[in-house]
């Protein structure tokens, strides 16, 4: 029998695997084409002609800018909260064994494991019962809650690879807790936090299901897009916005991949 390294995949498997990958990527590439179409009223294919004018039109749309601004602000604040909470939780879970440890890791994962609509309606009914009016902060509350798990996953994977004796050495050598954190722990986990933060940003920037329940009358970019999807009346602008959203979310994902590619990836996502 040939050794494992030399075995080659059967052609049928190669075709099926390539087909699967194409199925996942071609639809997104189609968005790129549609951003340049001259057709305004329908989703006609083949494209009747190509133009750059919709980029200019979109650029001059205040509602798009407003939605984009809100989305970015929400994503930044939620990411910061998630980074702090996720790191603290990962530090506690990975450093020690204690009663309720499993419960706490379940608690962190729950907001993303249950369907988004449940998180959404749960938050809305809580806001209703407590008479909290919808605001920027109600959106942030929801987003930060389900972003924690992303940072947590990345940080836990990194803490596992970081030796606890480094911290002991630092404390033994006379550094106080803050110095140890600043000079020993932080340099070790910084790239994992950055990667987790980027993913959290992408997650928050793109979120729509929970947001529809917590935003009230405010419009984040995904909500703006959702309205366009339900009742399309400015298809070319929507095409351009979709293209921009793809770019804004793809960059953090690639960045996170490069920051964690030596070993973390299996621990972070392999379950």
């Amino acid at each position: 029998m040939r050794s494992d390294r030399n075995t080659r995949a059967p052609v049928s498997l190669k075709i099926a695997a390539a087909g699967g990958l194409l199925f996942m990527h071609l639809p997104i590439l189609l968005i790129f084409a549609y951003a340049f179409t001259t057709e305004e009223k329908s989703y006609q294919w083949p494209l009747p002609g190509l133009t750059l004018k919709w980029f200019a039109v979109t650029w001059n749309r205040p509602d798009v800018w407003q939605a984009l601004g809100l989305s970015v602000r929400v994503a930044i604040v939620s990411t910061l909260i998630a980074v702090v909470l996720g790191t603290l939780c990962a530090g506690a879970i990975s450093r020690s064994k204690f009663f309720g440890r499993e419960t706490i890791s379940l608690l962190v994962i729950l907001p993303i494991a249950l369907p988004g609509i449940i998180t959404g309606i749960a938050l809305r009914s809580a806001f209703n019962l407590a008479d909290i009016p919808y605001s920027f902060w109600t959106i942030v509350l929801g987003h930060a809650t389900f972003c924690v798990v992303v940072v947590y996953n990345n940080a836990v994977a990194r803490f596992r690879r970081t030796s606890g004796s480094l911290v002991e050495a630092s404390m033994d050598l006379g550094a106080d807790a803050f110095q140890t954190f600043r000079h020993v722990i932080l340099p070790n986990i910084a790239t994992a936090l950055l990667a987790g933060g980027m993913l959290a940003f992408a997650l928050s920037f793109d979120e729509v299901i929970v947001t529809t329940f917590t935003a009230g009358q405010q419009s984040t970019l995904p909500i703006w897009m959702l309205e366009e999807l339900v009742r399309p009346h400015q298809r070319p602008v929507t095409n351009v916005v979709a293209l921009v959203v793809v770019m804004v979310t793809v960059l953090p994902i690639l960045g996170a991949y490069y920051l964690t590619r030596d070993g973390d990836q299996i621990a972070g996502h392999g379950k």
Binding site: I28, I31, W45, L203, V208, M225, V246, T249, I253
Partner: peptide, 24 residues
């Protein structure tokens, strides 16, 4: 990873383009 993380709404939108009566 890219399709997993890329925008949910954009993915849905792409299929609206694909499945439309006059679409690809």
């Amino acid at each position: 990873m890219l399709p997993l993380w890329s925008s949910y709404l954009v993915k849905v939108y792409a299929w609206k383009l694909i499945l439309a009566k006059e679409g690809i």
